[in-house]
Design a protein around this nucleic acid. Structure first.
Lengths: 251, 251
DNA sequence: AGCGCTCCAATTGCATGCAGTTTTGTGCGC
DNA sequence: GCGCACAAAACTGCATGCAATTGGAGCGCT
């Protein structure tokens, strides 16, 4: 259990992975907002690669749910619905409870130090931009996942954490990250103490409170999803008579 | 909640998706065993597309963890270690508990009928090959996930279920699927009754027993991973003198 | 102005070609 | 027969080119 062979899953240093990493980071730091267009040409030019590679990278990110790919259309940064955001958080809670359950009482001194150092970094970045805070907070969770030495768990936690970041930029009001930092510290100490039930609960409530602070209202304010906005009206109308909407492409 | 908009994430009808589906199915039906080589040329020729497309499909499947992609090397069907298999099942348990938790007491009559019909199909296929039984059993779980109307949950449950199929063909002895069918029926009836705690427990034990029946011993019998098989011997030898193994490529 | 139509630039879908790397097969010395 | 060097084949990494589709500007009509 201590020295599980850490097999490299993928994500080496080929150009596709480089682009994926760059885009992922741009997305979670909200340099690319949901709905932003990602033409293959531009990406290729920007990263000095051919369109083929850019396209491949977009395919990967689409598989992770970070970008949306519609046939013959320009790829865009994903715009999850409010419900999808909530679903993502629900899944994340279960996965991260699993993480801390596996980790409770099994961390080395060095690992605990590493976690504390990371939270210190979060603390230090408190004066910076929200984007950096969010990235650091997310990386804390990924760091935890990595300590399980389970590549699959790392992958899923990372993916779902990224998705949650995405929703933060959609539905969240400017929020304070301070309590998150304290909660991170509490989780570390509970992990060190080895109190499995306690740490699972802490993680649960931590994520739940992040979700609740982020997903304030079921009515998306800045949500770009035209369909969701129009849904109630559409129902209304359907009751009266049929109206021709301009080719709503829900399919 | 009843009529959540079912947004299509990807996986439409472009050639890449077609190839992915075909390969996925071939893998879970064990027509392609773990370790099987997947050269881009051959795939392209087989499916009547260019290498570009085959390559893209392999990339997607690699992102799902079904194939392994090493730089400049032929892609192969993934060969998860025993520990990875166990991890996959652990994650799967949590995810599917979440599925049934969301579903308990919320299924329509039609949905329950659909589930029952599926289990009937599983029953009917009992005389057939193991491969078909495994596929049907897996599809039952995916069907459940789909009923949550949460695209993210569907994606993760599907992926992890496929991965579990993969490990079945690696570490499992020829097994009986009959109890699984009964357990499926029990889950459906508990879902219909709406007993949340009960159905979560049923799902937990169902998957746990599948895992335990499959992952019998930490020593893989038919495991193709040369490294794992040779590990104890290598240790032995190392104690005496150094032996030159032919370029073991663990990286 | 508002609506519909046509046509063109922008963009994707896909195949092919070339360069570099790995694997395989072959011949040679022992 | 056995091991080894070397060359040929196989395969991947990536760029480019062409056809098909889309989005939108421009334009005429009401």
């Amino acid at each position: 259990m201590a020295a599980r062979p850490t097999k490299k899953t993928s994500e080496s240093s080929d150009k596709v992975s480089v682009i994926c990493r760059a885009l992922r980071r741009a997305i979670i730091e909200q340099a690319l907002e949901p709905g932003a267009k990602l033409p293959e040409d531009s990406l290729g030019e920007r990263f000095g690669v051919s369109r083929t590679i850019a396209r491949h990278a977009l395919g990967q990110l689409a598989a992770e749910g970070l970008v949306e790919l519609r046939r013959n259309r320009i790829a865009v940064v994903a715009t999850p619905s409010w419900q999808e955001a909530r679903d993502a958080f629900d899944i994340r809670i279960e996965l991260e409870r699993l993480v801390v359950r596996q980790l409770a009482g099994k961390l080395t001194k060095a690992q605990i130090a590493e976690l504390n150092a990371h939270v210190d970094a979060e603390d230090g970045a408190r004066g910076g931009t929200d984007a950096v805070s969010i990235r650091l907070a997310t990386e804390f969770h990924i760091l935890l996942a990595q300590m399980t030495n389970s590549p699959i768990l790392v992958r899923y936690v990372s993916e779902v954490a990224y998705r949650c970041c995405l929703t933060l930029s959609l539905y969240s009001r400017p929020h304070s990250t301070e309590c998150a930092i304290n909660e991170h510290r509490a989780i570390i100490s509970a992990l060190a103490k080895g109190d499995e039930a306690k740490v699972m609960d802490l993680m649960h409530h931590h994520l739940d409170s992040v979700a609740n602070r982020a997903l304030v209202a079921p009515t998306p304010q800045r949500g770009r999803d035209l369909l969701d906005i129009l849904a109630p009206y559409a129902d209304d109308i359907a009751g009266n008579r049929v109206v021709k909407l301009p080719k709503v492409a829900r399919s």
